[in-house]
Each structure stands twice: as C-alpha cells, then as structure tokens.
Amino acid sequence: MASFSFFSFFLLSILLSFSPVLCTNSEGNALHVLRTKLFDPKNVLQSWDPTLVNPCTWFHVTCDSNNHVIRLDLGNSNISGSLGSELGELKHLQYLELYWNNIEGKIPKELGNLKNLVSMDLYGNKFEGEIPKSFSKLKALRFLRLNNNRLSGPIPRELTTLSNLKVFNVSHNNLCGTIPVDGPFGSFPIDSFEDNRLNGPELQGLAAYDFGC
C-alpha cells in the first residue's frame, strides 16, 4: 500500500512538472473575456476553448517559447462588439491586429500597458472617442494605424515621445485641433492625417483647444 502511494505521488509530480506555466492562465482568461464581448459570425474564435489553460493552441494566437502570447491576428475576420480592459493583461503582446472588422466603442486605455507592443493595427473599424494618452507608454511601438474609424478629439501631444514610431495613420476619422510636429511626427506624410478636422501643423506649440477642438 505504501509503495502504491509513493508511486501515485511520483506520477502526480511528473504531471505537474509538464503543466503550462501559471502566467498563461491570466492570458488565456483575458482572451476568453475578449471572446465573450465579440460577435463572431464566421466562427473564427471557435478554437478558443476556455477549459484549456494554455491559449497557445488557439487559432489566430501566437506564443513565444515560454508560452506567452505575443501576437493576436484577427484582421478582416468580420467580428463585431467592443474591447475592454482585459487586453491590458497580455503583457508580452507584440502585435495586435484587429483591422477591418466592425468593432465599436472606445479604445481601452489599458492598451497602454502593453509595453512590448511593436505594432497596433485597429484601422477599418467603428472605434469612437479619443486616442488614449496612455499610448505614450508604448516606447517599443513602431506602427500605429487607427485610420478609417470614428475617433474624435485632438491627437495627444504625449505621442511625440514615441521615438521608435515609424508609421502613424489617423486619416478618415473626426479628429480636430492641430498636427504635432515634434519627435517622429516631423516625418509622417500629410496623407496620414487627411479627412479629419485638423488645422495643419501646430505653430510654436499652440494647443489643439486654441483652434476650437
């Protein structure tokens, strides 16, 4: 009897040693919460099984060698609904691709917690409200495309501190105020800002509200 108990304990120890790392629990839970907020007529999220601790086997999700979610690819998936603070839990995320869908509501400020984010593509949706100032914390960000939405308000001046930003597109929205010229904004083409209520490059740091934004 004692030998059987020892064998059971030994077997349990082996099984636990192969279990996914704990951090993937929070990432899987975050993605499951996201799924509950989305309408998915094409069943592109069908593989997102909440009973699995590790989301790395789900379609449209890419993980690194440590089972951390580093990429979410749901572009052009015909999904609708809204985003919430849950996406801020994907601390290792590098690529967020949600373009050409019908997602609406405000862009969560919690996306500013994704310190490893390199690319954020939210264009071609129905997002409204202002661009979160929290995006200024995304120091690794190189690509930020928010065009073809319903965003309003000024372009946050805090974004001028994103020294790695190479591509920035907010065209075809309802933004107002002036276009920043500091930092990387001095190199973005004018068509990145077209079809808004923007007044052109700012002069001597004049604030957006000076122009009735």
Score class of each variant (00 low, 15 high):
19 S>I: 14
57 T>N: 03
31 L>P: 05
82 S>V: 01
87 L>T: 06
34 L>Y: 02
94 Q>T: 08
103 I>A: 06
102 N>H: 11
51 T>P: 07
68 H>V: 08
27 E>W: 10
14 I>N: 05
67 N>K: 13
39 F>P: 05
40 D>F: 06
99 Y>R: 06
86 E>N: 07
85 S>H: 02
89 E>T: 09
94 Q>Y: 04
64 D>W: 12
59 F>A: 07
39 F>N: 13
57 T>P: 00
24 T>E: 02
106 K>G: 12
25 N>L: 13
8 S>T: 11
74 L>T: 04
111 L>F: 06
111 L>N: 02
60 H>V: 02
62 T>W: 06
42 K>L: 13
80 S>T: 01
46 Q>L: 12
97 E>K: 02
95 Y>A: 02
9 F>H: 15
91 K>M: 02
22 L>A: 15
41 P>N: 11
37 K>Q: 15
94 Q>L: 07
39 F>G: 09
88 G>Q: 07
32 H>I: 11
67 N>H: 10
38 L>Q: 03
58 W>D: 01
19 S>P: 06
104 E>W: 08
90 L>G: 00
5 S>A: 03
64 D>N: 14
88 G>N: 06
100 W>T: 07
40 D>V: 08
69 V>Y: 10
68 H>D: 05
7 F>E: 10
41 P>T: 12
83 L>R: 04
19 S>E: 10
9 F>R: 14
78 N>Y: 09
68 H>C: 07
94 Q>N: 08
45 L>Q: 06
83 L>N: 03
9 F>E: 15
44 V>D: 05
65 S>W: 08
83 L>F: 04
92 H>P: 02
18 F>C: 11
19 S>G: 09
20 P>T: 13
4 F>A: 15
11 L>K: 10
89 E>N: 11
22 L>G: 15
45 L>E: 02
26 S>K: 15
65 S>Q: 11
59 F>N: 07
79 I>Y: 00
102 N>Y: 08
77 S>M: 05
73 D>R: 09
77 S>P: 02
109 K>D: 12
35 R>C: 05
60 H>S: 04
52 L>G: 09
87 L>I: 11
90 L>A: 00
31 L>M: 07
75 G>V: 03
43 N>S: 13
89 E>C: 05
11 L>S: 12
63 C>I: 10
101 N>K: 02
47 S>I: 15
69 V>A: 10
49 D>S: 14
77 S>T: 09
74 L>H: 01
30 A>W: 02
96 L>W: 01
22 L>V: 14
60 H>Q: 04
60 H>F: 04
58 W>N: 04
95 Y>W: 05
89 E>K: 10
67 N>W: 03
71 R>P: 01
16 L>T: 13
57 T>Y: 04
